[in-house]
Structures are given as C-alpha cells and as structure tokens.
Simulated assay, not measured.
Amino acid sequence: MEDAPQTKRRRTDTDIDPETKPEAEMPPTRSTEYWFDDGNIILQVESTQFRIFRGILSLHSSVFRDMFTIPLPKDEPTVDGCPVVVLSGDTAEDWVLFLGVMFPKYHAGERATVLLLQALFRLSRKYDFALFRKECVRRLKQEFPSFTEDSDDDLSGWKLLDPENQDMYLPLISLAREVGLPSMLPFGYCSVISLYDGPAMEKVLDPSDLSVHPTDRLACLLGYAKLLKLQSTTILEWLNLDDGSPDLPATDCETPDACCAAVRKIASNPDPGEICVLKDWNADWNNKMCSCCEERAKSVYAGGREDCWAQLPDVFGLPDWDELQSLDFE
C-alpha cells in the first residue's frame, strides 16, 4: 500500500541514563487527552503514548486491521497489559489532531483548521483511513471549487475552514499538490493573487521564501498579469467606453450622457490591480446609472466572470477543467 507505515514494537531500554538519551529515546509520556483506561492498544508516536481501541482503529483503517491479524509474540513487552505499536515517521501533534476527529470533542459544524486538514490527510493516506480522507477531500473541494453553477455567487471567503489568516491559501495549495488534487489549483492561485497586497502575495513575491514551491510562484506571477488583461475584456468590459464598448449605454437608455459619465467615474475609481473573478457585483456601483444600464452592466459582469472562470486553468498554465478533474487522485 502507498505510504505503508513503518511500525515496530516498543523496546525497553534501562541501560541508558534518561538524562543523556536523545529526544527520540526519552522515556515515553502518556497523552493527557487520549489515554483511555479501558483501551486495549497503545500507539507510541515520538515520545507520546496514546491508549485507544483496536476495534475502532480496525473499523476505519485497513492498515491497522491487517496489522492486528498478526499474533503477538508471547514475550512481547506491554504497558498496563496493552501491546505497544511504535509509529515511525509520524508526529505526536498530527495524531492529537487526528484523534480529536476520531473521538470528537467539537460540534460537527465547527470549522477545521489547515493544520487539522494536513494531519488528517497525512495519516488517512498513510494508514488508509478512507472515510476521513474522503471528508478531507470534500472540505478542500468545497473551499477550492473546480466549477460553479451560479457565477453570480461571491466565491471569496471560507465555507468549512477556519480562516486563521490570509496566508492559508499557500499551505492549502501545497497540500493539494501533495495529495494529488490538481483541480484545486486554479481557484487556489486565483485566491492568492486576489490578495496581491496581503501576506500570501508577499510570500509569492519573495524569491527567498523557500516555503513557496517554484511552480506555484511562477503560476501566480504570470497568471496575475494574464488575468488582469483577461478581465478587462470580459468582466469589466462595460467600463471601456473610450474603446468603443458595445455594451453601454443600453439601447433603451433615456439618459445616455449621464450614464456614460457615471461609468467613466466608476472606471476611474477601481483599483487597477484588483482581481474580480471571485467577487460578486460591487454594491457601490448600484444606482450610479439608470436601471437599464445597470442591468446591462451586471449582465456583462456576470457573463465575464463565467468566461474568466472557464479560462482560469489556462491563465495559470494548467490543463482545462475536465482534464484537471480527471487527474485528481480522489
């Protein structure tokens, strides 16, 4: 199985002075949160031990289910009568987060954090916790959709994740790349460049920041310029009166001079670097034109978002939406 875990039975070592042991060999400590007195298996991760239940692990994980079919040697050391499985390559922090989902302490509607999703993905893939992995994919794809039925919806903001900061998009993009979900990338890149004056974009612009994958940095930088140009001829085309825009004023407009003046005033105010693909119609533009021209402008804006959305993968040098979805691992 992919990412098969390296496990070994705990060995007792009384010949080494605990004061001189390296961190990995320090005496284990019991988890304060996940040590159940009626548990029948102990997982040791780094120097932390978790006493939980074989049946629950077997129910959710084919890896643990297969592991527990192997009889234990009669002289196998135990702790409080429970066998100990040492899980190599994992972190205690990831397991604390993971067990918090397996033995929930929060309401189902509580938003997840990036750290929690990263832990769930790492451990659910390594140990084949299929249901947990499926839930992670669902959450990620709802945050980073590959399509939308209604382009008038405001696609900015978080739905199922807890927005700790503006820098969340880059770790999620890295996670999408790590777990094989390329259909998340266009929306992720677009979200980053929408924060062109925020921490996420600052990291993209800083070539010395090694936490940003070079492919992601290049995609964001090149895509930013391409998307600005694309939206000027799609989403914001109604603002291009001086370029002979066919959209405004509307054919049934009774105040064309006033409406054109209003459009030129709007065109002089928007931030020239603003990315609009993920944003609904700006309410500040309401009541600036006659109702006919406003409806026409809204229609162009909505249609332009659909056009940009369809071309978003190409903007970032990726295959089209259908191919990206077919490449998703899940």
Rank of each mutant, 00 (worst) to 15 (best):
D13E: 14
D13N: 13
E23N: 04
A24R: 13
P28N: 01
W35A: 02
N40Q: 09
Q44F: 05
T48C: 09
I52H: 03
F53C: 09
S62V: 12
R65A: 15
M67C: 12
T69L: 08
P71N: 06
V84A: 02
G89A: 12
E93Y: 07
V96F: 05
L97Q: 13
G100D: 15
H107N: 11
L117T: 07
A119D: 05
K126S: 09
L131R: 10
L140R: 04
D150S: 11
L161G: 03
P163R: 03
Q166T: 06
M168D: 09
I173E: 04
I173Q: 07
S174Y: 08
S174F: 08
A176D: 09
G180R: 05
F187P: 00
L195C: 08
A200G: 11
D209P: 15
S211G: 04
H213G: 01
L218V: 10
L222K: 10
K226Y: 10
S232V: 01
E254W: 01
A261D: 15
A262W: 13
A267S: 15
P270A: 01
P272C: 02
G273Q: 13
I275S: 06
W285G: 10
K288H: 14
M289F: 08
S291L: 13
E295D: 11
A297V: 01
K298Y: 02
D307Q: 08
A310P: 00
P313C: 06
P313W: 02
E323H: 13
D328A: 08
